[in-house]
Design a protein around this nucleic acid. Sequence first.
DNA 1: TAGATTGTTAATCGATTAACAATC
DNA 2: TAGATTGTTAATCGATTAACAATC
Lengths: 208, 208
Amino acid sequence: MANKQHDVPDIVVGRLPIYLRALSSMLAAGKQYTSSHELAVWLGISSTQIRKDLSHFGEFGKQGTGYSVIGLHDQLRQILHLDREWPLIVVGAGNIGNAVASYTGFARRGFRVVAVFDNDPVKISSLVGSFTVRSNSEIPAFTRANRVRHAMIAVPAQFAQEVADLLVASGILSILNYAPINLSVPDPVHVEYIDPVLHLQKMTYYLV
Amino acid sequence: MANKQHDVPDIVVGRLPIYLRALSSMLAAGKQYTSSHELAVWLGISSTQIRKDLSHFGEFGKQGTGYSVIGLHDQLRQILHLDREWPLIVVGAGNIGNAVASYTGFARRGFRVVAVFDNDPVKISSLVGSFTVRSNSEIPAFTRANRVRHAMIAVPAQFAQEVADLLVASGILSILNYAPINLSVPDPVHVEYIDPVLHLQKMTYYLV
DNA sequence: TAGATTGTTAATCGATTAACAATC
DNA sequence: TAGATTGTTAATCGATTAACAATC
């Protein structure tokens, strides 16, 4: 395998999970082999791009035959470090926090929600999904004790930065932020954003 | 204003809502003027990119002074057609459907959820947020009667494509898809995707 | 073998950035 | 005025694609 840390474009890394998702579907459908062309049609991109992307990490196919679905699937899981289950915490026990804490889509894709936190005394000790809501003040001890690296922020925008600071101080390295605001975090920490309104607004540009 | 439909790169259109969001924050903070540099620092991108992006649509700033926050804010709202309120329907009354139907973040950003649909007889007629769940079969008549152009899909992956087909047939032009699967839709219809797991998986690549 | 498909090189395409004249 | 900042051009950078030798 070509070396991983050396300079794979971020945009390429971002497509690997999409490939993995497609391969999982194929796997579930009982498909044994696929090709860059078939994947490309499935995803609506070019087959050259898929082959180029994969070439950053090694050679996974066979000329004339294509790729073993399970083989490529498992290689991508390894490359993305998804050959294990990562614990994940949720901060914020409102609507969004409730939804993500109850979301069954994490299982078998590498993640498991292990705790839900909130600062509101009314919510602390209440039940969200199958979790008893804990106080934010427990975050540092909890994440260290459980070696948690991933967190989702689902608090109102005005509290998101302070929560992010607390998460960073607690050793969290990956933050998925649902609050509609840009976060500033130190270098080793990664942040990704989910704001459905941005998507709706973008599409609205093309309407009439 | 330079013409809009002519060939503005999609990637530029996608950044306009981000600029709008930052300007809204500044507006809320009582700021009257800003500059491409200040916005750039705020968003972690380059000031040249902001000026270049805006130049596709016209000239909104003043040399030496920068931009009127409210002025640029309102221009972007017009460009994105957000100077009105767009009705929005939710298909799927599970966890995600519940969360988006109850999400207060749509108001004042251009959208309002007007109905929630589901196919499950157990859910139909139940209450989700302030909405009585309707049957999917009502979608075509409802969207036409209410001139709805936007929909969110929050059903399990295996039903997402058939729901998309129904939405397209009902005149929906913008689909925000929460199901972890690629949809195929005809040309005038736009689809955007939200899959939190893709973001988590991407960040996990950079972990150890 | 013949057909299919890979991995990779080189060319193309498009997006970002540096630099600066114009001007508030 | 002097300082600041715009809008835009040209250069650079990076990503995508076309083409093809290698080979299963």
